Amino acid sequence: MTKGENTRKYIIKKSAELFNQRGYAGSSLSDITEVTGIKRGGIYRHFACKDEIALEAYDYAVGIVNEKFTEAVDNQQSAIDKILAIFRVYEQVTEHPHLSEDVLY
């Protein structure tokens, strides 16, 4: 993976965490530059606008949550255990709103 690809993924990850905490409307491009430590020009090198970042961040966030739901369900045998596992994952998401692979269970 190139440095540019790593930077783009980092911006997406940090923006997903920001949008998860403050929402899209509550997050500005200045907020994104603050949480990433990347200047505005560096952000625009990878994304045309905040909307493009938001779409990528949404896909990233959905991917993490879907992965956690799949892992939880795959480890269960009965239908009721699978449903309860989904609730446990959802409970973790609501109790730990910071979007991160290592926070969600």
Rank of each mutant, 00 (worst) to 15 (best):
L18M: 10
L18I: 06
L18R: 04
L18W: 06
L18T: 01
F19K: 09
F19N: 05
N20L: 10
Q21F: 03
Q21M: 09
Q21C: 11
G23S: 09
G23C: 00
G23D: 04
G23N: 02
Y24H: 05
Y24K: 05
Y24A: 06
A25V: 15
A25F: 00
A25N: 14
A25L: 10
G26W: 00
G26D: 03
S27D: 11
S27Y: 01
S28N: 06
S28K: 05
L29F: 05
L29Q: 06
S30C: 10
D31E: 01
D31N: 05
I32P: 08
I32S: 11
I32R: 02
I32W: 01
T33F: 00
T33K: 07
T33I: 03
E34K: 02
E34N: 08
E34Q: 08
V35I: 00
V35C: 08
G37D: 10
I38C: 08
I38W: 00
K39H: 15
K39T: 11
K39M: 08
G41A: 09
G41M: 13
G42Y: 02
I43Y: 04
I43G: 04
I43K: 04
I43V: 01
Y44H: 14
Y44T: 12
R45Y: 12
R45G: 01
R45Q: 12
H46V: 08
A48Q: 08
C49G: 15
K50F: 04
K50N: 01
D51E: 13
D51A: 14
D51S: 11
D51K: 15
E52Y: 04
E52F: 04
I53N: 09
A54M: 05
L55Q: 12
L55M: 04
A57E: 00
A57L: 07
Y58W: 08
Y58E: 11
Y58A: 08
Y58P: 11
D59P: 13
D59W: 10
Y60K: 02
Y60E: 02
Y60H: 08
A61T: 13
A61P: 00
G63Q: 06
G63S: 07
G63M: 10
I64C: 06
I64M: 05
V65G: 02
E67L: 09
E67R: 11
E67A: 12
E67V: 12
E67Q: 15
K68A: 12
K68P: 09
T70F: 11
E71Y: 02
E71F: 04
A72V: 02
V73I: 12
N75G: 07
N75Q: 12
Q76D: 02
Q76F: 01
Q77A: 13
S78I: 14
S78V: 11
S78P: 13
A79L: 15
A79F: 13
I80C: 13
I80A: 13
I80L: 09
D81V: 03
D81Y: 06
D81F: 03
D81K: 12
D81C: 11
K82N: 06
K82I: 02
K82R: 10
K82V: 03
I83P: 09
I86E: 11
I86W: 01
F87M: 11
F87D: 14
F87H: 07
F87V: 11
R88N: 06
R88G: 07
R88Y: 07
V89A: 03
V89S: 03
V89R: 00
Y90G: 05
Y90P: 12
E91H: 01
